[in-house]
């Protein structure tokens, strides 16, 4: 007794489906990759710092290694020189992995329609959630992350299998 009953009250037994339990686990402790590219990364840092405190959503632990992280926040403009690196980082992440494209540059190239910038990171890796803004406010980023959480909560068992290549 003790801890569980103090958290759950007098419920005794909780029944749930496997899908719900796994998805709950995936959303509650999602570890982002510590990966910043440009200006948007500064706003991403603000989101994690004291005022906006991303750890409220179980995301305080940034992993520098792609092997240990679930979510890649592409924060900033992806240049043609950087694109192979981004792709390689994505390939190293373990499944299930999610990509959030933060800011106009990562989503569509933003103000830079020129020789150096990849016009949207979705040209090289698949993206789950796009967050607009230049840079997006921390609230916007949090909204994007919550949108991703909602989406993960709706995942089904067969998607875990068929979506392996993600």
């Amino acid at each position: 007794m003790g801890v569980i009953s103090s958290k759950l009250g007098n419920l005794g037994v909780v029944t749930t489906s496997l899908e719900t339990a796994v998805n709950w686990g995936r959303t509650g402790a999602m570890w982002p990759l510590l990966f910043g590219l440009a200006c948007c990364a500064i706003e991403m840092m603000s989101t994690q710092a004291s005022n906006y405190d991303l750890s409220r959503f179980g995301m305080e632990l940034n992993r520098a290694s792609p092997r240990q992280s679930d979510l890649m926040i592409v924060a900033g403009r992806v240049t043609r020189k950087m694109a192979p690196v981004v792709r390689q980082l994505y390939d190293q992440m373990a499944s299930p992995r999610y990509v959030l494209s933060m800011g106009d540059c990562a989503s569509s190239g933003g103000v830079y329609n020129n020789y150096a910038i990849v016009q949207g990171v979705d040209e090289i890796i698949p993206v789950d959630v796009y967050v607009a803004g230049c840079p997006p406010r921390p609230e916007q980023l949090i909204h994007g992350i919550l949108t991703l959480h909602e989406r993960i909560k709706g995942e089904h068992f067969n998607e875990w299998i068929t979506g392996q290549e993600r």
Binding site: D122, I124, P126, V127, G163
Partner: peptide, 12 residues
């Protein structure tokens, strides 16, 4: 067509 997975590409 020339993006590996389009904007809606992730929906299985």
């Amino acid at each position: 067509k020339h993006k590996p997975t389009g904007k809606e590409g992730r929906v299985s």
